[in-house]
Amino acid sequence: MTPLYIQAFGGVDDRGLHSVAGTRPWDAGQAGPDEVRRDQVLDKQYPAFGKLSLPDRLAFAASSIALTPGGTAPLAACGMCLASEYGSFSTDLRYQESIAAGFPSPAIFSSTLPSSAISDVAIYFGIKGPNRVLCGPDAIVDIFACASRLIAHEKCTSVLVIALSAMEAQDRQSAIARRPVAMSNSAWAFLLSGIGNDTLRISIAAEPGDASAAAKADDVSLYSLARLFMQGAEGEIPLTIPQYRGKIILTKET
């Protein structure tokens, strides 16, 4: 895998909002990432923030945290790789409810695509490079590999890698969920480039495991990755996702 260097990251999960500056817990009364507010991730007003569907809003929130500090490479040449664990599961059902109510919602329909989660980010930040959207619980390994290849083949100079696990609470808690799912949502965005400046190099050592293994609910891998990066520390994090055995490795480049 061509070396990838982490330039910035952003994350939202039930622990709080994560950035290179550390973790900010949710405000009192805020139930968690599902209730993230615009002012917590973007300084400027953005009226369209409220209309984003839940998955799109979480991906947007994590990306905004990663990209807003600025000082990053021009984003027009940036690519994007999204790992969407549940795809558009919840928005599909919300759209169907709007049909059943007699007034199908065009706005919800335009979010019934796993790729809508990166469209909003691309539109807002002007990211025009190639992008990949992979679905399923194993996709987080693939997105780092995709990012590495995009940079290795000079398709773009940096890649925003987003891992999204988003299902609306009403769908999770009902009997609709037919495999174990995490009890809260999360979104992580890592801005990666092929050039390291005194920063941490990420690589993934993963082998295909049993393709038929049951999915597990786990976002330990990326939270641990973010924590190591925040600490500026080297380390290894085991991958706990189906279809793969292996680890994520963070190495300091000096």
Partner: peptide, 23 residues
């Protein structure tokens, strides 16, 4: 979900690994 179909195809045709994309 898309990945469920890909998994089925992989098993059904005896393939070694599968990836699911949706753009």
């Amino acid at each position: 979900e898309p990945a469920a179909l890909a998994g089925d195809l992989c098993r059904r045709f005896g393939l070694h690994e599968f990836h699911t994309i949706s753009t």
